[in-house]
Design a protein around this nucleic acid. Structure first.
Length: 528
RNA sequence: GGCGGGGUAGCUCAGGGGUAGAGCAGGGGAAUCAUAAUCCCUUGGUCGGGGGUUCAAAUCCCUCCCCCGCUACCA
């Protein structure tokens, strides 16, 4: 029996960025899981938000001539807009500049102090003014020989500033034990290995305060310091459920979180620092951190300097919302890096959505509309073929549930697609258009089976493509309240005789504008 | 350099001692309910190179070549 609650989070996004495909991808994966869990009967808390502190924000605000808070009010809106456009079903949107978060951050700080894991020391290192960054001794390069500079070529100087430290070094063994006791804390497994070897290599204490700028959460009792951004940022996950009030209803219900979804670039902060902070503060660590991969654009690494950043809003405009959601979840084994190729996108839309599910629904439903009086057909005795078809559709939930539990989102879609293909094979093999003339009763049975299969397919695709799934279920006359997974299988089977609305297309083919009307004879350049 | 993962059909990848697989692409055919969508059949690979163990190796061992990830404090 599955637990009836589920807490899932995205990272909080750094407001200095414009939302790009990476942000959309992370939150989309969470949205799919959150929707799946809700439909599967769980109470879900789905959190996203924005990280609004740090030196870069302070600088950007200054450059824009406004106070940091006014600046972040403005830019964090971009991320709230993304939530709307992508149809993300978030339950809470947290901002690190909110009072509740500042209180929570200071509270966890106090808890770390109380546990004896914080001490005052000084942070020293090679600092490059030009890069505004510290570099490790090992990162420095000699150029020209004898003179050490940053890998970026910037000159460095040795600087020291007072800083509070977290005794991370003391947590190595406890972290390793934690990983060992919770083998699925880090997924995919390959990432787990990386983290393990990193921790086994030894941990240094971590500088967790700064004095060089002001835009952050003040360290309790020492206003000259602000908290290190990562300690501040990670704390959002408990802020949102009521910390420091560990008796708060949300906290008691939802902590520890079931899943922190993150990009592979920030895995370590979540898989090493965060559990150490939490355990030190006497709070249970989350159950899982999943690190997903990155996208390339037509085989090219994405970067601002290359100018090939993918704008999710643009994708939605061009290909449609559900098509975009489907492609991102379907194209790549979740966890791996993937390539966004226009050709692949169009291929998926047309082959799987338009020709696969769309056409299956259209041919089935319009046949019912024309030949079964526009009502749910009356099934007779089921043949082996019928039962095999129904069995495949009704067995889908269990398969998809198993995949979603391990964040194998692509696998859930592959299993779903298998049933779409099987249904197209079924309709061809049963040929209701022939049965219409030879055995109308049998035809009704076949059509009923098809309608039932479509109902399962529609319900199960809701987490991935909410709007399109709703259209399909509308056409099957399934009331909104009956679209939860508890109604899959025989429990919520369609009632023969129920009137069905006239069907209409769900997924149009994507016609590539650049190929739509090829010129008959390419105009030859006039030579003269 | 160290640790880890990988190199299998044109493309993306699954398989992991016993007659080489899937999807897409390519070729042929059937059907005409449907968004000209669908279905069936099919071409195609000495499984990175070399060596070894074995009755038998894509699969185990050795070695070489190539690719990718991680190797601490920028979100």
């Amino acid at each position: 029996m599955a637990e009836d609650r589920y807490y899932i989070t995205t990272p909080i996004y750094y407001v200095n960025d414009k939302p790009h495909i990476g942000h959309a991808y992370t939150t989309l994966a969470c949205d799919v899981i959150a929707r799946f869990m809700r439909l599967d009967g769980r109470q879900v808390h789905f959190l996203t938000g924005t990280d609004e502190h740090g030196q870069k924000v302070e600088k950007s605000a200054k450059a824009a001539g406004v106070e940091p808070k006014a600046f972040t009010d403005q830019v964090s809106q971009n991320f709230r807009d993304l939530v709307k456009v992508m149809n993300f079903s978030v339950d809470d949107f947290i901002r690190t500049t909110e009072l509740r978060h500042i209180k929570a951050s200071q509270a966890i700080w106090d808890a770390l102090v109380k546990s004896g894991d914080i001490y005052l020391g000084s942070y020293a290192g090679w600092y490059a003014v030009r890069d505004e960054a510290f570099y490790a001794e090992s990162e420095l390069v000699e150029s020209p020989p004898g003179r050490k500079v940053a890998p970026t070529g910037a000159p460095v100087e040795w600087v020291e500033e007072p800083s509070y430290f977290f005794k991370l070094s003391a947590w190595q063994d406890r972290l390793l034990k934690f990983y060992e006791d919770n083998p699925q804390f880090i997924l995919p497994a390959s990432r787990r290995n990386e983290v393990l070897s990193f921790v086994k290599g030894g941990l240094n204490d971590l500088s967790i305060s700064r004095t060089s700028f002001k835009w952050g959460v003040p360290v309790p009792g020492d206003d000259k310091h602000i908290m290190y951004v990562w300690l501040d940022a990670l704390t959002n996950y408990i802020t949102a459920v009521g910390y420091p009030d560990t008796d708060a209803p949300l906290f008691k219900k939802f902590w520890p979180a079931d899943l922190h979804m993150v990009g592979k670039d920030i895995l370590r902060f979540h898989a090493v620092l965060w559990p150490a902070f939490l355990m030190s503060a006497g709070i249970a660590p989350p159950k899982r951190v999943f690190a997903h991969g990155w996208w390339t654009n037509e085989g090219q690494k994405i970067s601002k300097s290359l100018g090939n950043v993918i704008d999710p809003l643009e994708l939605v405009r061009t290909y449609g919302l559900d098509q975009t959601r489907y492609f991102l979840m379907r194209e790549v084994p979740f966890g791996n890096d993937g390539d966004f190729a226009r050709k692949a996108m169009i291929g998926r839309i047309n082959a799987e959505l338009a020709n696969g599910l769309g056409n299956l629904a259209q041919r089935s439903l319009s046949f019912i509309n024309k030949n079964a009086d526009g009502k749910v057909p009356q099934p007779g005795a089921l043949t082996d073929a019928d039962q095999a078809m129904l069995g495949a559709a009704r067995g889908l939930l269990a398969k998809m549930r198993a995949s979603i539990a391990l964040q194998e989102l692509h696998k859930a879609l592959a299993d779903w697609m298998d049933v779409v293909v099987q249904a197209n094979q079924y309709i061809d093999a049963q040929a209701p258009w022939t049965l219409k003339k030879t055995d109308p009763k049998r035809m009704e049975t076949v059509l009923y089976v098809l309608a039932e299969v479509l109902r399962q397919l529609g319900a199960l695709i809701q987490p991935f493509m909410p709007d399109s799934a709703a259209k399909l279920l509308d056409q099957l006359g399934v009331p909104e309240k009956d679209r939860v997974f508890a109604n899959l299988g025989e429990a919520g089977a369609l009632k023969p005789g129920a009137a069905l609305p006239a069907p209409e297309g769900i997924f149009p083919r994507f016609v590539d504008p650049s190929e739509a009307a090829p010129p008959k004879s390419p105009p030859k350049a006039a030579k003269r």
